[in-house]
């Protein structure tokens, strides 16, 4: 599978995750997001709150070479962005298909280890 970003074809796996981390760009993230639907069945659009988590995940991956499990992500977000964001209610509202799974996909990371 593949997505088209600025006229360039980028490879994704069968679940829609980027095959190569380095292919990611904000433009790619928008296109990956638009493949999903939001609560009103419109293409998923990324707000500043989404970007904050997406960039957090990319930095986390760069530092630890891993996409964190949900409970680890929640704790880490809390440390970095504050308690009101470091809870699963907030993160599931932002990413209804699962903060780890969906946000990681938009961030161009592999599926989190241990995620089924």
């Amino acid at each position: 599978m593949a997505i088209e970003v600025n006229g360039k074809s980028i490879e994704t796996d069968e679940e829609g995750y980027l095959v190569n981390l380095a292919d990611w760009s904000e433009e790619a993230a928008k296109i990956l997001a638009a493949q999903d639907k939001d609560a009103s069945d419109n293409p998923f659009e990324l707000t500043n709150n989404h970007w904050e988590v997406i960039h957090f995940l990319r930095e986390y991956y760069d530092e630890y070479q891993i996409a964190p499990a949900v409970r680890v992500l929640t704790k880490a977000i809390g440390k970095k962005l504050g308690k009101e964001k470091g809870n699963s209610k907030y993160l599931y509202e932002l990413f209804p298909y699962g903060p780890a799974k969906q946000a990681c996909r938009f961030a161009g990371l592999p599926k989190p280890t241990g995620c089924i």
Binding site: Y64, Q65, P68, A69, V72
Partner: peptide, 13 residues
């Protein structure tokens, strides 16, 4: 992949 970096998250787990 340099997975030696990942040992540093074990504490978070």
């Amino acid at each position: 992949k340099d997975f030696s970096k990942t040992y540093r998250v074990l504490e978070d787990y």
